[in-house]
């Protein structure tokens, strides 16, 4: 069971993540769950999803963009952004875009290769939930959110850049 940090604390995960290859039959097989579905799943099975009884969130891979969700964005309580490998930095841009351009207020969750030493940067870009890779120690990951006291830039976590606060 992957470990989840949400709002700076260890949390129970009430969501189920669907893999890319999943078909619509899953909606009948596991009714009433809260599902994080791949972007393509949501695009391809909009009709099947309409009757589903649980909550729906979407996850974007690092080569997908927030604008592909379009006006429906506000309907989702959760958007997850994937890190296929930790060195793939595209999801940082997606997180900022979610928060800053689209003013998305729901949960933004990091999934995939999510490691302790990225968490500070992730939180500055607007992630507020982290589904840690299985081998990560959650307590030390929570501590890593405070690796730095402050930063120079205007970010989601600190919208006023340091030069305006000095």
């Amino acid at each position: 069971m992957p470990k989840l940090i949400k709002d700076r604390a260890i949390a129970i995960d009430r969501w189920t993540l669907l893999k890319v290859a999943t078909g619509p039959e899953v909606l009948i097989a596991i009714p009433g769950k809260n599902l994080i579905v791949p972007l393509r799943f949501w695009q391809d099975y909009a009709i099947e999803l309409e009757g589903y009884t649980g909550d729906i969130g979407i996850w974007l891979d690092s080569d997908e963009t927030v604008s592909e969700i379009g006006d429906a964005l506000g309907e989702f309580p959760l958007i997850a952004l994937n890190f296929p490998v930790f060195a793939d930095g595209r999801s940082y841009s997606n997180a900022r875009e979610l928060r800053e351009r689209f003013a998305y207020a729901g949960e933004v969750r990091a999934i995939g290769d999510v490691l302790r030493d990225q968490l500070y940067y992730m939180s500055r870009c607007g992630f507020d939930a982290f589904s840690l890779r299985h081998d990560q120690d959650p307590d030390s990951c929570i501590a890593a959110l405070d690796d730095f006291t402050t930063g120079y830039q205007a970010t989601v976590a600190e919208p006023i850049p340091l030069f305006r606060r000095r």
Binding site: F86, A87, D88, G89, Y92, S93, R96, Y120, Y121, M122, R124, C125, F148, G151, Y152, Q153, T155, L162, F163
Partner: peptide, 17 residues
């Protein structure tokens, strides 16, 4: 110097291509 500060620990651009 302004660019140095902006680029230092820029959270979005720590894992560029």
């Amino acid at each position: 110097e302004i660019i140095r500060q902006w680029s230092t620990f820029h959270p979005e651009f720590a894992h560029l291509p």
